[in-house]
Amino acid sequence: MSTPAIDVRGLDKRFGSFTALDGLDLTVQPGQVAGFLGPNGAGKSTTIRVLLGLLRADGGSVRLLGGDPWRDAVALHRRLAYVPGDVALWPNLTGGQAIDLLGRLHGSVNTVKRRELLGRFELDPTKKARTYSKGNRQKVALVAALASDAELLILDEPTSGLDPLMESVFTDCVREASAQGRSVLLSSHILAEVEKLCDTVTIIRRGRTVESGTLDEMRHLTRSTVRATTDGDASALDGLPGVHGLSVDGRSVTFDVDNDRMDQALRALTDLGVRSLVSNPPSLEELFMRHYGDELAALNGEGRGSA
């Protein structure tokens, strides 16, 4: 296999006594769109800043496009483009000037692509940056990044200010970039976006990777929700290995089942006589909730630190 676009192993980062990243792992293969998921304050932006050589790693190994992001920052930055989560622009420059400037700092500007992207994102480049809304500032950074010929795109919650229409434009643009063979790291907490776009997903929590793999692989590890109407009493399913949260209401039954126990559960159901059956594959949301659900419960009513 060729060199990964991003290869992070056991990354540690501390700010004083606060541990932001605690042995984080993240791999993005060339040409892949990798989702990077976690709640606010999990360490997504910190990881990205380490990848950009803006923060120095305290431990672990970080390789970016085969180089060291701290030492080789400038050479590597020629090959990547970055869209921050909160785009700050120079208030006295217009959007168009900022796009050109960022492009020139990067290397060159593809004027054809620039014009096309301005049209697709419906961005007025003659407005001063201080008059732009959050979404429009994000479009400026997106146009600058997508108009570049970077082989790696690092996007930190790039759609947080975009409306649904622009979000779909963004989705198309990422698909096109991926089709051209570019690698993409997409940090997000919008699960639908990640499910739609990403080949692989890494979920982090409190600076540590808790799950990573392709969506399919991860679905194997999780539970599907089964809803059925049966002739017999479905209480019989109680205690069956892999069945969770059984709820019986007359003839209808709902339960979650571990995917590798699905077979046994269905057998038990058919023995009862199935009238109707709906099975929902696990969504990323359920995956996410399984990792954070306990935290949500524990923190019920309490404040949580943000990034």
Partner: peptide, 10 residues
């Protein structure tokens, strides 16, 4: 955050 944007370029 503008330095971040600039320094993330080459």
């Amino acid at each position: 955050g503008r330095a971040e944007l600039t320094l993330a370029a080459a």
